[in-house]
Design a protein around this nucleic acid. Structure first.
Length: 666
RNA sequence: GCCGGCUUAGCUCAGUUGGCAGAGCGCUGGUAUAGUAAACCAGAUGUCACAAGUUCAAGUCUUGUAGCCGGCACCA
């Protein structure tokens, strides 16, 4: 009898099979329906193909088409076929890295006589389709790195990838007809015909090994699915993402603009956008004052020495506006960050332990000379106003203050209905400590303190090395833009360095001087980035409390109803509501349509019936039906709705549940 | 900053082998006076991104510059 191996299934049951049984045979052994759907397996946590013979005991999970792993196998195979097509069309082309991700895949290329461009996609797609139609088997075998080196000797990137691969051998995937082969990790489908629906999407430059000092390759992006509908959904999703883009909506709703002729990355806020921003600013200032912060104003200009002392000049000189030489030896700098300003506030008086935690906040305007390629709408700009705050604490207050800030953050998220985010603990890069404040003990201490605080609160997070600020580790709240790019929304940063550099002290209970710790924190990011973020999550349909115009009043007939409409307008304005009367010479349907396309929360129509009943006909944004409401009741309801920051006037989660989640005892 | 692409009216876009600068929406004026997503008529849109070059002639071809878009790198 042949040698047996033991496979452990996901449900912990075990199964004895002959050694060298393939994944497909294992799947068939479980059920034919599973075998039909299967495209590989996760064996001892490694992705393997259907033809993989199993030779050791291990855990196995059959990978089906409808799983993320199944898509990874498909996309890996599609990237392989793309590479084959590229090589057929451009024999001299060199390959760089390749990968699949949650949206699709990419393959990096380098061509001496002009890079691959989107105009090549038709030819590439046609060639790929030929290969897919031919349904060629893809075989896999391990080849010693030494044997493969000669084949790639003229290809600098592949040679490097080969050298960097783990072990002495790599898996080489080949078409059965011998016309193409490639090496790499990850599993593939057994035949090219397994690729059903793919699309090449875009090309973009990407540095070799992600280092800007290296040459730039051309990255070809694509995606692939097993089902036509899934591919169509993905393409539709990408289209909708563009419609959600804050730059598009910002223009359509007349919120802001950037005119390169008067300054790149320097946005102008139109009245509508300014109203949203002002509402956010008032909200967050009130919220912070209620949470013990003292709001201040500090100058946007300071002597350059301030930023030399803080270390910003040494670290970020390239991204700061050049200093203004005043001719008498003084150099003034547009501030790139507010922390040194708040340090001046702290240092202005002698501080006692009784003053701590000392919380100072500001909507601080800053200027950074962001590189031209980084600029993007309101998301990356050269002048921005940060919801900045610094709290100065004693060592033993760090944990408690951290929790308080986190609680404040979560309350704010609830008010804005922000739910899609991830916590990231950002540490320094252990392989490149030069970038950071040189004090190993400080780093180890503050990083473990941060992690302990998060663990203590039982919050999920992921850790990222190399993402820390130069002065300390941070908790970042990561979100995604409409186009899927990651960005930091909120941040809490521990800083043991600035207090040293500025010799900050407080007088302790013992009458002696002690060194405080600084916590930098931003809740709603910059006004620019946050507004962009809100535009995208709301798709321009702002909740009533934020909407630039909260209600539009439309008289059925101007000469009969305008008087009453103006009365309602006055009543609403007295209650602090933003309301507009549309008395243009247009048909009612036209005005209603415009109110809807401008995403005004409430459209109020007034005619004979309403005048007689002291009522309004209410139509909510996005809804087709209307409701008659007494004018007073309607005004009371909309006032209540704006007061509790809600879109629909519904009650929000209780305070206790938030406290419990964060484990905060007052 | 880097690689690729793009740039025509306020917006979305046509514009043929080089031969008078176009449409829809929006805007302006007028007519119509209305019950829940687009009334009708008329009118004005403009340094075809900018600067050179080729040509009898350039929105169109060539070169350079800027900006924008996608991504990479950066992001205190």
């Amino acid at each position: 009898m042949a040698e047996q191996i033991t496979l452990t299934m996901p449900d912990n049951s075990t199964r004895q099979v002959e050694k060298e049984t393939t994944v497909l045979e294992v799947a068939k052994g479980i059920s034919t329906s599973l075998a039909k759907k299967s495209v590989g397996a996760r064996f001892n946590n490694q992705l393997v193909g259907l033809d993989e013979p199993l030779i050791d005991d291990g855990t196995i999970e059959i990978v089906t088409k409808d799983s993320a792993d199944g898509l990874a196998i498909l996309r890996n195979t599609t990237a392989f076929v793309l590479a084959d097509a590229l090589k057929r069309l451009y024999p001299e082309l060199h390959f760089g890295a390749s990968a699949d991700n949650e949206d699709g895949f990419y393959y990096d290329t380098d061509k001496a006589d002009g890079q691959v461009a989107v105009t090549d996609f038709d030819k590439l797609t046609a060639t790929m389709n030929k290969l897919i139609k031919a349904n060629i088997a893809i075989t896999k075998k391990p080849v010693a790195k030494a044997d493969l080196a000669a084949q790639y000797k003229d290809d600098p990137y592949k040679s490097q990838l080969l050298k960097d691969a783990e072990g002495d051998a790599v898996e080489v995937y080949s078409l059965a007809d011998g016309s193409f082969s490639d090496f790499g990790e990850g599993a593939m489908l057994p035949k090219t015909g397994g690729i059903k629906y793919f699309q090449l999407l875009s090309v973009a430059g990407a540095y070799w090994e992600g280092k800007s000092s290296n040459p730039m390759l051309q990255r070809i992006y694509g995606t692939a699915f097993y089902k036509k509908a899934d591919l169509e959904d993905e393409l539709k999703r990408r289209q909708e993402a563009k419609e959600r883009d804050h730059r598009t909506i910002g223009r359509d709703l007349d919120l802001f603009f950037v005119d390169p002729k008067v300054g790149n990355g320097l946005p102008y806020w139109m009245p509508n956008g300014a109203t949203i921003r002002r509402t956010i600013e008032r909200y967050i200032i009130d919220k912070e004052v209620a949470n013990g912060y003292q709001h201040v104003y500090t100058p946007v200009l300071a002597n350059l020495d301030l930023y030399k002392q803080s270390g910003h000049w040494a670290h970020y000189r390239e991204d700061m506006f050049p200093p203004m030489d005043m001719g008498d030896g003084e150099q003034l700098e547009l501030r790139p960050m507010n922390c040194p300003s708040h340090i001046q506030i702290y240092n202005h008086h002698i501080r006692s332990y009784r003053d701590l935690p000392f919380r100072v906040a500001e909507l601080g305007m800053m200027h950074r000379y962001e590189k031209s390629g980084a600029l993007s709408g309101l998301q990356r700009v050269r002048e921005m106003t940060l919801n900045d705050g610094h709290t100065f604490v004693a060592l033993d207050q760090i944990q408690d203050e951290f929790k308080k800030i986190l609680k404040l953050m979560m309350e704010v998220y609830e008010d804005f209905n922000i739910t899609d985010y991830r916590f990231r603990l950002s540490y320094r890069d252990p392989a490149n400590t030069k970038k950071y404040f040189p004090d190993d003990e400080m780093w180890n201490k503050s990083q473990s303190m941060l992690k302990a605080a998060m663990d203590d609160l039982h919050l999920d997070y992921y850790e990222a090395e190399g993402e820390a600020a130069f002065y300390g580790p941070k908790l970042d709240v990561q979100t995604k833009t409409a186009l899927g790019n990651e960005e930091t929304l909120s941040t809490i940063q521990f800083d043991f360095m600035m207090p040293e550099k500025f010799d900050l002290t407080y007088v302790g209970e013992d009458g002696k001087e002690h060194r405080p710790v600084m916590i930098h924190r931003g809740i709603v990011s910059t006004m620019e980035r946050f507004t962009a973020y809100l535009i995208e999550i709301y798709k321009g349909a702002f909740p009533t409390w934020l909407a630039p115009v909260q209600a539009v009043l439309i008289p059925v007939k101007n000469d009969l109803h305008l008087e009453y409409v103006n009365y309602i307008k006055d009543e609403m304005q007295k209650r602090g509501l933003r309301v507009r009367v549309d008395d243009r010479n247009e048909k009612m349907g036209y005005k209603i349509r415009e109110a809807q396309t401008k995403k005004v929360p409430y459209t109020l129509v007034v005619g004979d019936k309403e005048v007689n009943e002291v009522a309004v006909s209410v139509r909510k944004y996005g809804e087709e039906h209307t409701e008659e409401e007494s004018t007073n009741m309607f005004i009371d309801a909309i006032v209540a709705e704006t007061k509790n920051y809600s879109r629909d006037g519904k009650l929000k989660k209780s305070q206790e549940s938030l406290d419990k989640k964060l484990d905060i005892q007052e």
